[in-house]
Amino acid sequence: NQESVVAAQLIPINTALTLVMMTTRVVSPTGIPAEDIPRLISMQVNQVVPMGTTLMPDMVKGYA
């Protein structure tokens, strides 16, 4: 089963992602794949992401 990127903390809107903000977990439905974490660093979220929420492609500016 593929791991997806999950918020390790509350991420406010327009925050640039850092490694410490993200963790990985096997979730359903699947979100952004864990191997894309290096690509996500410094990208901004376009909404508030509560802790434990799976990051979906449409939540990250410039990802999709």
Rank of each mutant, 00 (worst) to 15 (best):
7 A>T: 14
53 T>L: 12
4 S>K: 02
33 P>R: 08
23 T>K: 13
28 S>K: 03
25 R>M: 15
23 T>R: 10
59 M>G: 01
47 Q>F: 04
26 V>M: 13
50 P>I: 04
60 V>Q: 00
52 G>C: 07
1 N>G: 13
34 A>I: 08
27 V>F: 02
40 L>K: 00
48 V>G: 11
26 V>I: 09
62 G>I: 07
27 V>M: 08
35 E>I: 08
9 Q>L: 08
30 T>D: 11
58 D>A: 14
16 A>S: 08
51 M>K: 12
61 K>F: 05
60 V>D: 02
61 K>Y: 09
59 M>I: 11
64 A>Y: 03
17 L>C: 01
11 I>T: 01
5 V>L: 04
51 M>Q: 13
56 M>P: 01
51 M>V: 05
24 T>P: 12
52 G>P: 01
31 G>R: 03
47 Q>I: 09
37 I>N: 01
36 D>N: 11
48 V>M: 08
4 S>W: 03
30 T>G: 08
54 T>P: 07
24 T>H: 14
60 V>P: 00
18 T>L: 04
24 T>S: 07
20 V>M: 05
13 I>Q: 12
15 T>N: 06
4 S>E: 00
51 M>N: 10
59 M>E: 01
43 M>G: 14
44 Q>T: 11
13 I>G: 09
37 I>S: 06
19 L>K: 12
60 V>T: 02
16 A>M: 13
64 A>P: 11
32 I>E: 00
56 M>V: 13
38 P>S: 07
57 P>N: 09
44 Q>N: 11
30 T>Y: 13
6 V>G: 01
57 P>W: 09
27 V>Y: 03
38 P>Q: 06
31 G>P: 00
3 E>P: 06
53 T>Y: 12
10 L>V: 10
47 Q>S: 08
39 R>A: 07
15 T>M: 05
23 T>C: 05
6 V>T: 12
41 I>L: 13
42 S>Q: 10
34 A>P: 10
13 I>T: 07
56 M>E: 09
62 G>D: 12
45 V>H: 00
62 G>S: 09
53 T>C: 09
58 D>F: 09
29 P>T: 11
52 G>I: 02
13 I>Y: 12
27 V>P: 00
63 Y>T: 06
59 M>R: 02
5 V>R: 00
47 Q>N: 06
22 M>G: 01
14 N>V: 02
35 E>S: 13
37 I>L: 09
50 P>V: 10
56 M>A: 13
14 N>H: 07
54 T>G: 03
41 I>K: 06
62 G>V: 05
31 G>N: 01
2 Q>Y: 12
27 V>A: 15
11 I>S: 00
19 L>P: 13
6 V>A: 07
39 R>I: 11
33 P>M: 10
64 A>K: 15
8 A>G: 06
59 M>W: 09
31 G>H: 03
26 V>C: 15
55 L>M: 13
19 L>E: 11
53 T>N: 11
59 M>F: 10
4 S>P: 01
47 Q>M: 11
49 V>M: 03
28 S>N: 09
58 D>C: 15
57 P>R: 03
20 V>P: 07
46 N>W: 03
47 Q>Y: 07
5 V>P: 01
37 I>M: 10
15 T>C: 04
7 A>C: 03
22 M>W: 02
62 G>F: 09
28 S>A: 12
42 S>Y: 08
16 A>T: 07
30 T>H: 11
54 T>M: 03
53 T>H: 07
18 T>W: 02
40 L>I: 08
34 A>D: 07
39 R>S: 13
13 I>L: 10
60 V>A: 02
2 Q>W: 14
10 L>P: 08
28 S>Q: 14
12 P>M: 09
25 R>D: 14
3 E>I: 05
17 L>T: 00
35 E>T: 12
13 I>E: 15
27 V>W: 02
13 I>R: 09
26 V>D: 15
4 S>G: 04
26 V>A: 11
34 A>L: 15
59 M>S: 04
63 Y>V: 04
21 M>G: 02
36 D>W: 10
14 N>C: 08
16 A>D: 06
33 P>I: 10
12 P>I: 03
42 S>G: 14
9 Q>R: 06
12 P>A: 10
52 G>T: 06
57 P>K: 08
4 S>Y: 15
49 V>P: 00
55 L>T: 01
45 V>Q: 00
61 K>T: 08
10 L>Q: 10
3 E>Q: 04
22 M>N: 01
60 V>H: 01
6 V>C: 06
7 A>F: 01
41 I>R: 05
24 T>Y: 08
50 P>D: 14
58 D>H: 15
5 V>M: 02
55 L>V: 08
47 Q>H: 14
9 Q>K: 09
31 G>Q: 05
4 S>R: 02
12 P>H: 11
1 N>S: 15
44 Q>W: 06
51 M>P: 07
18 T>C: 03
22 M>E: 01
44 Q>E: 09
53 T>W: 08
45 V>I: 04
46 N>G: 15
44 Q>P: 09
20 V>G: 08
31 G>C: 04
5 V>I: 09
23 T>G: 15
15 T>P: 00
27 V>N: 06
29 P>E: 14
35 E>W: 04
23 T>M: 15
20 V>T: 10
32 I>D: 01
62 G>M: 08
50 P>K: 13
45 V>L: 08
22 M>L: 14
34 A>H: 11
42 S>W: 08
6 V>N: 02
29 P>D: 14
51 M>T: 04
54 T>S: 07
20 V>A: 08
62 G>Y: 05
33 P>F: 13
28 S>E: 15
22 M>H: 01
31 G>S: 03
25 R>S: 15
47 Q>P: 02
41 I>P: 03
21 M>P: 00
7 A>G: 03
43 M>F: 12
60 V>S: 01
46 N>R: 12
3 E>K: 03
8 A>L: 08
54 T>C: 09
35 E>P: 10
46 N>S: 13
28 S>D: 15
57 P>Q: 10
59 M>Y: 07
36 D>Y: 12
3 E>R: 03
64 A>C: 15
24 T>A: 13
45 V>M: 03
57 P>E: 12
49 V>E: 00
39 R>F: 04
1 N>I: 15
45 V>C: 04
36 D>F: 09
8 A>K: 10
2 Q>A: 15
4 S>H: 02
58 D>W: 10
23 T>P: 01
30 T>L: 10
37 I>G: 07
44 Q>A: 09
45 V>N: 03
17 L>Y: 00
10 L>R: 10
48 V>Y: 09
45 V>Y: 00
14 N>P: 01
10 L>K: 07
31 G>I: 03
28 S>L: 04
51 M>Y: 07
22 M>D: 01
48 V>W: 08
32 I>R: 01
49 V>A: 03
40 L>G: 00
64 A>N: 10
51 M>I: 10
57 P>I: 06
27 V>L: 08
41 I>E: 07
39 R>H: 12
26 V>G: 07
